Computed example of a mutant assay.
Amino acid sequence: MGTVYLGVSPGDRRVAVKVVRGEIAADPSFRRRFAREIDAVRRVGGFHTAPVVDADAGAERPWLVTEYIPGPSLHEALRTHGALPARTVRTLALGVAEALEGIHGHGIVHRDLKPSNIVLAESGPRVIDFGIARAADGTALTRTDLVVGTRGFLAPEQLTGGPLTPAVDAYAFGMVLCHACGAAPSAEAAVRDDALRLLPRDLSAVVADCLRPDPARRPTPTQILERLGGEEAESADWLPPAVRTLVDLHQASTLTVPEG
């Protein structure tokens, strides 16, 4: 979709600056959708997202600035250290479900929930880039050679052209948790069943419901939280030591960002 830069605000705050690709920016309809999505995204709060700081949909190349969250993506953590322990996966599930509850509550569907759009911060997981995929949907680029979303995490209706509702994020949520416990993302039933066996029983039941082919039968984020919220509270040490080291490295790397 574009390039992300680490920037510094005038007040010396670290921020993520996301600049849209030129071929997408050339589509006037994208710019209109991008402006609408940014207005909606600004209203989303909560502990498990990255707040929007500033944006300009009318720039030569539209851009969006969000709070920089020091930490690896879930994708980076899994690629570097492999499957996460059950305690970490549970906190991941609670945080991502809470983020989706806030996102959906403002009429936004993420459409591209995946490990690289989840940052593992010291305080808990953060979901990023919601709204941008929706803004790109329908551009000339997406109509001709790009499906909005990432294969392996796409709900069946995203592949068949069905209506895109918040239920697509529930499906992706289920696939993310399967991936976090060590399974390769796949829509194949045998692979999915193997992944479910790797999860704790209560999480496995929720994920199985999230992966139902019928969108109407998937749970909402609120229902997920109701089913999981009483089991175990989040804690300051939710990350395994190896992943916490990655968080520390991300925090240290921002100290050397040149100003200007």
Rank of each mutant, 00 (worst) to 15 (best):
K18S: 09
E60K: 12
L249I: 03
A16Y: 04
A83H: 06
V89P: 00
G152F: 01
L64R: 12
A216Q: 13
L100Q: 04
P258G: 13
T254F: 01
C181T: 12
T222Q: 06
I108C: 02
A121W: 01
S123V: 09
Q223Y: 01
S73M: 03
G22C: 04
C181G: 04
T49D: 06
D137S: 15
V19T: 11
N117I: 12
R151E: 12
E101I: 06
G174E: 08
D209P: 00
P70T: 09
V127E: 04
A50W: 03
R244Q: 11
D129M: 09
A233I: 00
C178S: 11
V207P: 07
K114P: 11
V15H: 07
T165F: 02
V243G: 00
P62I: 04
L211H: 09
F153V: 13
P115R: 08
F153L: 11
Q158R: 09
Q223C: 00
P125F: 01
V206N: 04
P240G: 08
G22P: 08
T91H: 00
A242V: 10
V207M: 02
T165K: 06
E76D: 15
E23F: 05
V257H: 03
E226W: 06
A180C: 05
R13S: 11
T139G: 12
D169I: 08
I103S: 01
A140E: 15
S186T: 15
W238M: 07
G131A: 10
G131H: 12
V53E: 09
I24A: 09
T150I: 07
I224G: 08
E188S: 12
P62Y: 06
P200C: 07
P125I: 03
A184N: 02
I38E: 00
V41R: 03
E67C: 02
L146V: 15
L74N: 00
E101P: 02
A57S: 14
E234F: 00
T80E: 15
A183E: 14
G260E: 12
G46C: 07
A155C: 10
F173K: 04
A205G: 09
G230P: 07
D209C: 00
A184S: 08
S253G: 09
E37N: 11
L177H: 03
S123T: 14
P185V: 13
A187P: 09
F130H: 14
V4H: 02
L159D: 09
H250D: 10
R36F: 04
S29P: 02
L74I: 01
P213Y: 12
E232D: 15
P241K: 10
T139R: 10
V8N: 04
A25M: 10
